[in-house]
Each structure stands twice: as structure tokens, then as C-alpha cells.
Amino acid sequence: MDLVRDVLDARLVDRRGRSLGRVDGILLDVRDGRPPRFVAMEVGLVTAARRIHPRLARWVRAFAIKVLPVPVRPTRYSPRLCRDIGVDVKLDVDAQSDARLLRLEKWLRRHVVERIPGAGE
């Protein structure tokens, strides 16, 4: 497996096929005299912005803290959760029942979208 080719920027999907975001960053543990260890896949707007420019990441972070109703820290997924790596990376998690996942999506659904008539559910 090539982390940059196969994992970075791939879409993450949960057990039910629900999208969890894209792999915006890869966390490695760099160790003296030993190969680096793959620690986590990171999903978050600030992580993605850092890839363009660190200053952009700072702006996005400051803006997100002011505007967003949920904590701005990125979500990290351990490689142990991987069930399959193909065009998408399939993870052994359930976004619906896990309160730590898709926080912004769930907040917007509950506080904005569901208050507008015709939104369903």
C-alpha cells in the first residue's frame, strides 16, 4: 500500500456506506532508526487548508472557531479501522450512532435543516 497514492484524499465510508469525509491528512510517528509508523487518517477543513498554506489553515481555524457551532478539531481514524482500501477507504465504524462522527452534519440537520418544512425525516 502506498499511503499517498491509495489513502490520502480517498473518501472514507462507514459500515453502512455513509460518507465520513476525505482523508485530508496522514499522521505518521517518525522514529529514530526505524521506519515511520502510520498512526491515523485525519479529516478536517483545517488539515486540508494546511496543505495549501499554513497561514490559510490559521485563517480557516480562526474563522471556524467564530462561526461553527461544533468543536473545530479534526477527526482521526486509526488504520486498524480499515476494512478495505480501494477507490474508497471503508472503515469499521457507524457514523449514525457514534456521536463523535459527522458532528457538523448532525448539528446542521437538527438545528437548521429539519426546521425547514419539507426536509424529510
Binding site: S19, G21, E105, L108, R109, I116, G120
Partner: peptide, 21 residues
């Protein structure tokens, strides 16, 4: 699609809040 959110006009807005917003 760029950020890997659920998307699709065939779903109800409540199922894809960010897409609909």
C-alpha cells in the same frame, strides 16, 4: 464531493444537511 460529504438530490435534505445547505 470535494470534501467527501454525502450528496445526492434523490435523498431528502435532512439526510444530507450540508449538501442541501
Amino acid at each position: 464531493q470535494s470534501f467527501g460529504w454525502d450528496w445526492g438530490e434523490s435523498q431528502k435534505p435532512a439526510e444530507e444537511a450540508r449538501f442541501a445547505l
